[in-house]
């Protein structure tokens, strides 16, 4: 870990001023990812701006019947919040599928969006990585890429965004509120994270001088028909090989509206609206779900070690949609897949 300055602003505006003044400064909230990266010398900030005490910790209902989640609400508090448990259980479930309880106690909502990839090469400063050191090359494309992306990859990066919570937020069509020197703006969740393209060093569209202040959820929470299924190499405390967030509004035996987002397969939560549209009005059965899966995965491309993810994702999509349609969401403590 390198030498850094430490500052603790009391107001959001002050935090924004401080980050704008130092391009090598970073915000720190829970620290669960940033400190990990700093200890590996992957992140070398000149200054840490401690935002953990900013007044962004409340969960409030919005006038339109949605929910506003302060960027600093810890993951566990969010998952256990009565309004989230009752109205957005998909989000609660996805949060509980990630990391460990200790980490969830520390990690913040906004920080989760900023989580960086677990790509081995990104973490090892002795190997080339375009995300860490633009132009140095991607070691994963022809290297160890079992955990890597099958969708939206580029010739410069095949890293995966590792969050669970964000997969649910993508499915729920959350909005991200951010504050910068020029004031506040909102971003649709789908616009927040980026594909690697030829700038894999950029994970998302947050400007360097902006701070996430809140996540807003629309009123529709799909509390009745939803499921989050995470598939990984051990039964807990591991990153996803593939995860699926599915949310349905049912009309009898048919799907009225569908939401589907995938984790572990791309540089951002992977959501294909065409697949969701294809489900609308269709009977909730395996054939419809398989068709949606095929749309989602059209264009998927496997590498030497991760091609299995394509078929796995297809099966997982069908299964998760089935769980959602049946109203039997995957439990995160029982490891038997429902």
């Amino acid at each position: 870990m390198i030498n850094f300055q430490y500052a603790r602003p009391n107001e959001v505006a002050d935090a924004v001023r401080q980050i704008a003044a130092d391009p090598r400064a970073r915000f720190i909230a829970g620290g669960t990812n940033l400190l990990d990266l700093m200890k590996s010398d992957v992140e070398q900030p000149s200054r840490l701006i401690d935002i953990s005490r900013l007044p962004l910790k409340s969960v409030e209902e919005t006038p339109d019947g949605g929910l506003r989640i302060g960027a600093l609400v810890p993951n566990t508090d969010l998952a256990y919040h009565p309004l989230v448990e009752s109205r957005y259980p998909l989000l609660a479930s996805a949060i509980m599928a990630g990391a460990s309880q200790q980490l969830r106690n520390m990690a913040s909502t906004g920080g989760n969006l900023m989580q960086r990839t677990r790509c081995y090469y990104f973490y090892d400063i002795a190997t080339p990585c375009n995300k860490r050191e633009p132009g140095s090359g991607c070691s994963a494309i022809e290297g160890l890429n079992r955990m890597h992306a099958i969708l939206g990859t580029s010739e410069s990066c095949i890293a995966v965004y590792p969050s669970d919570m964000s997969i649910a937020l993508a499915a729920l069509e959350a909005t991200v509120r951010v504050m910068g020197p020029g004031g506040e703006r909102t971003m649709a969740f789908a616009d927040f994270h980026r594909l690697p393209g030829d700038t894999p060093e950029r994970d998302n569209n947050l400007e360097p001088n902006e701070i996430i202040t809140a996540i807003e959820l629309p009123p529709q929470g799909f509390a009745k028909n939803h499921s989050y299924l995470k598939i990984r190499d051990r039964l807990s405390y591991a990153f996803a090989l593939v995860s699926v967030a599915a949310a349905l509004e049912m009309d009898g035996e048919a799907v009225k509206e569908a939401r589907l987002a995938l984790g572990g397969v791309a540089h951002k939560p992977w959501r294909v609206e065409a697949a969701e549209a294809a489900l609308a009005g269709q009977p909730a059965n395996e054939a419809s779900f398989a068709k949606a899966a095929d749309i989602v995965l059209s264009g998927a491309k496997g590498f030497e070690h991760n091609a299995f993810k394509i078929d796995l994702a297809r099966r997982a999509i069908i299964r998760t949609l089935t769980q959602a349609a049946n109203g039997t969401p995957q439990s995160q403590s029982s490891k038997k897949i429902r």
Partner: peptide, 25 residues
């Protein structure tokens, strides 16, 4: 243990990606 034989380096030299059973297993 995952070694990248181009570099001769172990790429999962940690407890996050070298998986051992946890309580849930």
């Amino acid at each position: 243990t995952l070694t990248d034989h181009r570099f001769g380096r172990i790429m999962n030299a940690n407890l996050g990606e070298y998986h051992m059973p946890v309580n849930a297993d």
